[in-house]
Simulated scan of single mutants.
Amino acid sequence: MDARFLSIPALAEVPSPAPSVAVVVDVMRAYTVAAWAFARGAEKIVLAASRAEALALRSRHPEWVALKDGPPAPGFGLVNSPGLLRSADLAGRTVVRKTTARTVGALAVKDAELVLCAAFVVAEATARVLRERAAGTVTIVVTGEDGRADEDLACAEYIAGRTFEPGTDAAAFLRRAAASRAAAERATGVREGAHPDDVALCLELDRFPFAMVAAVEDSLMVLRPHPVPPADGGGAAG
């Protein structure tokens, strides 16, 4: 098993067939938020291709709650902030979300046999699923800044490291993420749709004991938590 790191645009150049195993990484903040949604009780997250699709799904399923990037907007009950989401009661709820490249990244690999969505908060659980189930080449999609976002690339490389060398230490990867442009932008000032704790929450390592698996269900791309029992001897180093 080996890994290749691709941006979303580069996926279009990958010849058929689709990757057999794909990991879509977004640290700040889409998949950190997704993990928090599951921790707050959400049953599943439906990944919408557009804001209009998210609102249409919410209209057809009034019991669902919609989530978006940026400030609050009519029809959307949640925003893309782990700091704001951590107090939400989502027990048994379905979340339908539209974010930017992060949702698009998962949809771009929907034909893969296994699709995992990841951030630092579920890094070790993701690596354990890869160690147990993957063979051949793992395609890791680095979503931010057309594959150049250092917080996403650091997390992607860390997950790959933990997959192939379980002793890989997290410290240097977390430092890179903390020094990234995205972290700096979110740490300066307070804006609608964000919380001062968002960066710190995005840099928590292995906060949750589950991976997140996306698959097509009734023509929709659906993300669900995948519990991973703790390994003997504890979690990740670092």
Results as ranks from 00 to 15, higher is better:
V213D: 00
P209S: 05
G75V: 10
S219Y: 06
E151F: 11
G167F: 06
A66V: 02
W36Q: 15
V142P: 09
A56P: 13
A125S: 15
A135M: 12
E157F: 09
A184E: 10
R29H: 13
R162C: 03
R131A: 11
L130G: 02
G147N: 02
L78E: 11
W64M: 06
L153P: 11
A160D: 13
G77V: 03
R162T: 01
P9A: 01
R181N: 01
E53L: 13
A171C: 03
T103N: 11
T100E: 00
R175H: 02
F173N: 03
I159L: 10
D152M: 09
V190R: 13
A211N: 13
A236Y: 01
G144C: 07
S16M: 05
S7D: 03
C202S: 07
G75I: 02
A37S: 12
L11F: 09
A123E: 11
M212T: 07
P17C: 06
L85Y: 12
A237Y: 04
D111G: 06
I8S: 05
T139L: 06
E124S: 15
G105M: 02
P82A: 12
A172L: 02
H226R: 15
L220K: 13
P15S: 12
S50W: 14
T163D: 00
F210G: 05
H195A: 09
R176A: 08
R148P: 00
A52V: 10
A170D: 06
A12M: 09
A118Y: 08
R148N: 08
A119F: 10
L84A: 08
A3V: 08
A3N: 02
